[in-house]
Computed example of a mutant assay.
Amino acid sequence: MNGSSRWLGAQGSVEARTPGNESNLPSDVVDGLPAVVGLHTTIPETRRSVQHLGSEREGHGVVIDDEGLIVTIGYLITEADTITIKDGDGQEYPATLVGYDYESGFGLVRATVAPPVKPMPFGDSDQLLLRSEAYVAGVGGEKATLKVKVAGRREFAGYWEYLLDNAIFTVPAYPLWGGSALMGLDGTLLGIGSLLVQEALGPGSPAFPGNMYVPINRLKPIFRELVEKGRLSTPPRPWLGLYTIEHMGQLVVGGIFDGGPADRAGLKRGDFLQALDGEVLDDVADFYRKLWASGPAGTPVTLRMERDNDSFEVTVRTGDRSSYHKYGSG
């Protein structure tokens, strides 16, 4: 999930657009570029997410109001102790966590002093269809901007217990994807960069690298509550603390969160997942849907597993992913 650039490199050392193409950006896109800022976080070595995401993370965010509110991708700020924003002129601003929605992947932070830039308005990400044109931008202005096309709108199942309906896949690949802005031709914000993917054209298509963007329309219905409360008031989904991958038509435990529900229940990397509460699992997305339909966080589920050619069942008391991570000092 690490989609960041080097902190100094985020100032535009990567020439993302074709030479000689600098003057071809729509004026609305050019006007919106200063709203894209760099983001740097530090995470204490004792925090659980360091094992998978590192103790320093770098990427981007987008200023979306006049008071320094910034939207980014959540994994950049998970368990962050310090958050620093850098604008296109190199000015740095401390920032604080506002909210994180684990289900969508959006994170919000606020700079203690609002950067002197025009906020980027939300657009309508539903208007992005197959082959639609858009622009991807990181901090650094025009030279850090790339013209892209939509390679697909489809479901995305992430191995970290994450499922996103109608994700946006773009090509060509943007190298500094984490928290980058997907902009419409009118300069509005249509998505936030989440991943580099190798099959941007879809399953069964030739490998072609691209990026996955979380549609901004996914943020709109939860935005106000996330700003006011930091998280949603709906019951949290049940969480196992597994990395799940598909291999040769089977679901395999690819990793386990230390101290998480699956770890406490004795599951191991390399175990095969066969069924949940007696229902056979078809694929990763089907696994997540069945898990989340079992009840709120804390609901026990029974998994049928296979290890060393032996099948067995284990009951796991699910947890709340947000309570697993720690924020703030200490």
Rank of each mutant, 00 (worst) to 15 (best):
R231C: 01
G54R: 06
G140W: 05
V62M: 10
E246Y: 01
L97W: 08
G241L: 01
L201P: 03
K290G: 09
L242I: 08
R321Y: 02
Q250N: 13
L281C: 06
A137K: 03
Y75P: 01
G140H: 06
K143E: 09
P44Q: 07
D258G: 10
D101H: 14
L190Y: 09
G210L: 07
I222E: 00
T318K: 02
V29D: 06
G210H: 07
L182Q: 11
D28L: 11
P44E: 11
E79R: 07
L190C: 08
H60C: 07
E246S: 14
F156C: 02
K229V: 00
T170H: 04
G12N: 09
E279K: 15
F272W: 08
G107Y: 04
V314A: 03
R57N: 09
I216S: 09
E103P: 00
G158A: 12
Q127C: 05
G61L: 03
V139C: 13
T299L: 05
P44L: 08
S233G: 14
L185F: 03
E56C: 03
G88K: 01
L273Q: 03
F156E: 05
D258Q: 12
G68P: 13
P261Q: 02
E45Q: 14
E228Q: 15
G254I: 10
G210R: 05
K143S: 07
V109A: 12
G202A: 11
Y327L: 11
A285N: 05
R231G: 01
P175D: 12
D308R: 12
G90K: 11
S233I: 01
Q91D: 14
R153Q: 07
P300L: 09
A111C: 10
A137S: 15
D282W: 06
Q250Y: 12
L25I: 07
R48N: 04
K229C: 00
S23N: 14
L240G: 10
L69N: 09
V14L: 12
L276Q: 06
L201A: 09
V37T: 09
E199Q: 14
A80V: 11
W239V: 10
F287V: 11
D28W: 01
L39E: 11
G54T: 03
L185E: 14
G202C: 11
A80H: 10
P175Y: 05
I70R: 01
G9W: 02
I222V: 12
V171A: 05
H325R: 13
L164R: 13
T82H: 10
G184V: 10
G204S: 09
G328S: 11
D87M: 12
G12K: 06
Y174G: 07
P203W: 01
A111G: 12
A157L: 10
T84P: 04
N24D: 11
L129E: 15
L33T: 03
S322G: 04
D271S: 05
T42F: 06
G61D: 05
G210W: 07
D283C: 04
R154T: 11
I245L: 13
A293Y: 06
